[in-house]
Design a protein around this nucleic acid. Structure first.
Lengths: 211, 211
DNA sequence: CCTACCGATCGGTAGG
DNA sequence: CCTACCGATCGGTAGG
């Protein structure tokens, strides 16, 4: 057998292969969940052997965790990064919501938001993937809550605003948009999601209370 | 082999067995999705043979469709039935939201809302399960929209209210509540979900717009 | 509704 | 990163 053809790769080649596997795994998971990832499917898609795929991670769970880490980084780059230079408070909060809507409209994965899909999939399970998703979710909700609190302290939102409630609604609307878009085929969903977020924050024309 | 012990059952016994399988399958799917259902797991849990389980449905897909039909009926009985006698319009819409919050707080399945979980799971797939979920989802959204429209026509909500937008937000908030409750372990989620729904409708004290 | 199977695929390992 | 395996489990069938 010729080394360099079917044998071991250089470190740089190995890293590149690993990256391809992780990207593909994350894309599969955005559609079919982290359990939709199988070693055999990845091997076929990427023209590798199963052992060639698994060797980079050691176990399927490690592969799932690597896909999750990558998808979280993509989420951060798509939703947080475009807003980070906006002034903290209301303006940055709205920039985050707009970046999120753009992310929903033109997603980096073929199945839309990876985090939303896998958060449902692992909501009631035990184990490291669940724990990592919970950590990521709590961190994101804390960041949203903090942003609302800055806006309240700056007087950009009413002092009696409930930061936890607003952060909850933003998060719920964001994840709840996926089935509207993909299952029901409503392509106005990202726009409606953004409008729902703006209403939750209080910058959209709210429907007037009648009682 | 003794018939009546390990052989064929009477029609009534067979129906009862089928019902047990469907209930168990729906409960598993509420946690692990419709793909989390396996014939072998059901057989072990219910102390049946795999052929005994499968014989009632013919294929796994038919079993999934039966579980879905059952779960939709449970949803209808939990969320629509308690509200059906309320006066049509705003009052009935709020009754639906309250019934939904009670359903989220004390769910009939161990993994919470079956419909929310499986709507994410099958959002980007093809096939009969996807199609049936899409039909159910559209029907439910139409019912919510119609209820909002009745409220608008009755003057209970402002004439310029956007019924589609309100129905979208109600649905998104409802499904988005599951990860807050189960993944993040926030047991205030059903209450916050109800409050988000009331704000979307316009009957909760809205945060005042500042720009 | 059971036993006794079937081929396919799963995650994973040994050894090069 | 490959070939060649492993036991376990998958959905499903034959026949009673």
């Amino acid at each position: 057998m010729l080394r360099g053809v079917a044998g071991r790769r250089t470190d740089a080649q190995a890293r590149e292969t690993r990256r391809r596997i992780v990207e593909r795994a994350a894309d599969i998971a955005s559609r079919d969940g982290l359990d939709g990832i199988t070693i055999g499917r990845l091997a076929t898609d990427l023209e590798l052997s199963k052992a060639g795929v698994l060797g980079h991670f050691g176990s399927k769970q490690e592969l799932q965790l690597a896909a999750l880490e990558y998808a979280v980084e993509v989420f951060r780059a798509s939703v947080w990064e475009p807003a980070r230079d906006a002034p903290p408070g209301l303006e940055r909060l709205l920039a985050i919501c707009e970046a999120w809507a753009a992310y929903a409209e033109d997603p980096p994965f073929s199945g839309g938001c990876f985090v939303a899909t896998t958060s449902f999939e692992f909501a009631t399970r035990a184990g490291r993937v669940h724990d990592e998703l919970a950590t990521v979710g709590r961190r994101w909700k804390r960041a949203l809550t903090a942003e609302v609190e800055i806006a309240i302290e700056a007087g950009e939102l009413p002092a009696e605003s409930d930061a936890d409630q607003i952060a909850f609604t933003l998060d719920a609307v964001a994840s709840g948009t996926k089935p509207a878009l993909y299952l029901l085929g409503d392509d106005t969903a990202p726009r409606r999601g953004l409008r729902a977020m703006r209403q939750a924050i209080g910058v959209d024309e709210a429907v007037v209370a009648t009682r």
